[in-house]
Design a protein around this nucleic acid. Sequence first.
DNA 1: GTGCCTATATATAAGAC
DNA 2: TGTCTTATATATAGGCA
Lengths: 239, 239
Amino acid sequence: MTRKKEKLKLAFITNDSARKATFNKRKKGLMKKASELSTLCGIDACVIIHSPYKSQPEVWPNNLGVQRVLAKFERMPKMEQSKKMETQESFIRQRIAKANEQLKKKLKDNREKEMTEIMYQCLRRGHQNLSMVDQCDVNWLIDKNLKEIGKKIESLKKTPQQVAPVALKNTKEMLGNGMHRKKEKLLGVDLAMDAMNRSHGFNEWMNNPHYENMGFDGDKMMVPFGDNHNLMWSSFFFP
Amino acid sequence: MTRKKEKLKLAFITNDSARKATFNKRKKGLMKKASELSTLCGIDACVIIHSPYKSQPEVWPNNLGVQRVLAKFERMPKMEQSKKMETQESFIRQRIAKANEQLKKKLKDNREKEMTEIMYQCLRRGHQNLSMVDQCDVNWLIDKNLKEIGKKIESLKKTPQQVAPVALKNTKEMLGNGMHRKKEKLLGVDLAMDAMNRSHGFNEWMNNPHYENMGFDGDKMMVPFGDNHNLMWSSFFFP
DNA sequence: GTGCCTATATATAAGAC
DNA sequence: TGTCTTATATATAGGCA
């Protein structure tokens, strides 16, 4: 979670001392979070941790509190229990789904950033050397930026004339936005690894046809090459 | 804990919808943390949460897992349980103690930053107008900076001559360090409030003589006014 | 191991829809 | 009410003493 270029892999820490250090830190953090949740929301909760470092389980808030919570828990009908058996599995599934969403979004963002860089190259050297696909995406991106600028200007027209300079500044920032940003790292894979470490069925999921459709969402990004006539940018930047 | 100038008070959230929103977010966060702890450290743990939002308790990892953990827990001798009764209280005490440490540190830091600002004022307008106390502290601070610069230069002498410009840059940064920083907000008080909300004895603690000694730790900061002869700064900046 | 520090990664309170 | 976004606050991995 920190101070590491590569994100810590969410898997069993094999280094003994590192694992113990992490255990102690995270145990403390977990207890604190439980404490805050209980205080902020006025609810009853408990945490129980068994570890090789202590013969006795470590608990929050304390043994009496745990037993009180347990008493309530025990009252839960046994039938309900089997019904909720898959709590953990669905939990993991949710995380995988969300990770895939993020991956998709990152792919799109990366593409947009690539196009932004290319856009500026075009503004400097023209864009005749690009592939047709890239030309399309660049057109789309420039158009999108211009539309946003237009929208912003429209919304600002409703305010007194004095703020016009702000509008100009904002649009300039928007145009420059992302030009120097590095591409963000991709997410998703780590969470999948996490799940794989604790659950079977990873291969099944990986081979799921759904995954193949998960890549860059072309239909939202592309502008048909032949549709250039409805783009405003070329007449704007290359009159 | 965010997007708010004043840190969220760690106390029951009275606004119903806000409380529910916070509950859901933090519940999710807590479960995730428990999950990570379990994976990273290969230990058995469980979380049980009772809330008014669900008739059934919400658990991690799942009911079977909880019951397995509970089985271990139940084996704990009853005598041990009473022995650990005060878990929560000592937990809060630890947090208060730590918060006080932080408060003390912040007070010291703030003082140091004040002195840094004053130092630069001095460098511009001389420091004849300061109180004796401030003159002392300013002397101390300038001296400290010069010592650090000296130390850094010494450590850099061990490296090839080519890096000398780096040394100069670093020392310049160190001199400028903090000049434009705002004073940090004080911590500690909120945690105390948190404890007060969940524990009695707050007033006793507040009135504890210890607290009176908790302020700015003068002996580490002050340099006796009469000891100016061992300072190097005055001859450096005011030759 | 024991602590502290700080750069980063996460969590999350408010806002905007 | 639920979702998404964004500015901040926390948590914490890896270093160092």
